[in-house]
Amino acid sequence: MKISRRFAGLAALLVAGLLGTTVHIVTTAESADAAQTSLRAADPSVLRVGGTYVGVQSVGDNGIAVRQASSPAGLATAAARTVFTDSQRLGEVWAPEIHYDGGRYYIYFTMGAGANHRMYVISSATADSGYGGATKLNLPDDRWAIDGTMFVFNGQRYFVWSGWAGTTNVEQNLYIAKMTSPTTATGSRAVISQPRESWERVVGNPFINEAPEAIKDPNGQLHVTYSANGSWSEQYCIADLRLRAGGDPMYVWDWYKSNGCLFGSNRSTMMAGWDPTLYVNGPGHHSFVLLNGDINTSPPAGSSFPLMFHAVAKGTPYAWSNRYWYTGSFMWWGAITYSRANVPGSTTNTGYSIKFFE
């Protein structure tokens, strides 16, 4: 029998009480369970504007479409309106990410072929129409870049993406840069994560940190969750970077990494105290469904904190073509220590982590 998320949350409270763990619940079930939607696609990006949920996806190999619905699950059957087509045929259009800033919608996406993948942006005052031509983001060093996301933290706008250190495909790191507007990066880039832990190097060539998503915990600390291991493998999973209180997002040693996957399908790579998935393989490239896509609204008012992610159903061959969008949820889990060694600064940091639910 599948246990509903509501009962899972209650069980978590009971366990936490027994263990003396500080827990902050930000979600109980809106419905009985999370579910596979009917949308066979990857890389969900979803936000809420008023009472409308807006989702964006790549279509074909060179387009972007927007869907709108009254619930996250409803996006799968909502009409998909194409808002961008790469008429120049620059290459693949991957992983669009939608944001709402200053009354306008911004969609960031990767476009290019091979080593020429770069980040681009389009914008409109309307979610599903009126977008102009694509503008290439002037990211520092102008290297291969995918999966970019924008957020505002402590009054400063930042952009985080997955990219290469040089001009060859050795590994995908997470980089951050400051922005002076939703379309303009400034200054230098700084690395904040590299796939160097054993649990994120199970599947590689290259080894991967990608699909970053920012969110702020109940203590006001910044987190960037991300996907590790190759997306072509069921070892794909979600991990967490937590910025120490008062830390500088541009300084790598102010970030502390979870000691394993927080959402994954293989027990051997999960962080201690976290269990693997029961119903899906390789969950990854998720979207925190935030009001206006703004991390400063998280946790939002109300009892539900929805999540969208892609995965492959257990019992189905793991392949990109078998990925679906799934609805899910998460809760903050307090008093969790992330540890590290042989680096500057403190070796441990204690704060909120995240429990994900299928």
Rank of each mutant, 00 (worst) to 15 (best):
D240S: 12
N205L: 05
W199K: 07
P206E: 06
A214V: 06
D217Y: 02
Y226Q: 03
V202I: 15
R196L: 14
G246L: 08
I238C: 07
N229V: 06
Q194H: 09
E213T: 10
R242H: 06
Q221E: 15
N209E: 01
Y175D: 01
G204T: 12
V224C: 12
C237P: 05
D217E: 10
E197Y: 11
T184Q: 13
E234D: 15
S193L: 12
I215H: 12
Y175P: 00
P182A: 08
L243T: 09
V191H: 04
V224Q: 11
E197S: 13
Q235S: 14
P212E: 03
K216M: 11
A228S: 12
I215P: 02
A185N: 06
Q235E: 13
D248Q: 08
R244W: 02
S188W: 07
G204C: 13
H223S: 09
T183W: 01
Q194C: 07
Q235Y: 15
A214T: 09
A245P: 03
Y236N: 11
G247L: 04
S227Y: 07
R201V: 02
F207C: 00
F207H: 10
T184I: 04
S231M: 11
I208A: 01
T180D: 12
D240R: 07
E210A: 08
G187K: 12
K178S: 11
N209T: 09
Y236M: 05
S231K: 00
A245L: 03
T183K: 00
I238L: 15
I176K: 04
I238M: 14
R244N: 07
E200P: 06
N219E: 10
Q235C: 10
V224M: 11
P218K: 05
I238W: 02
M179G: 07
G247M: 03
I176H: 05
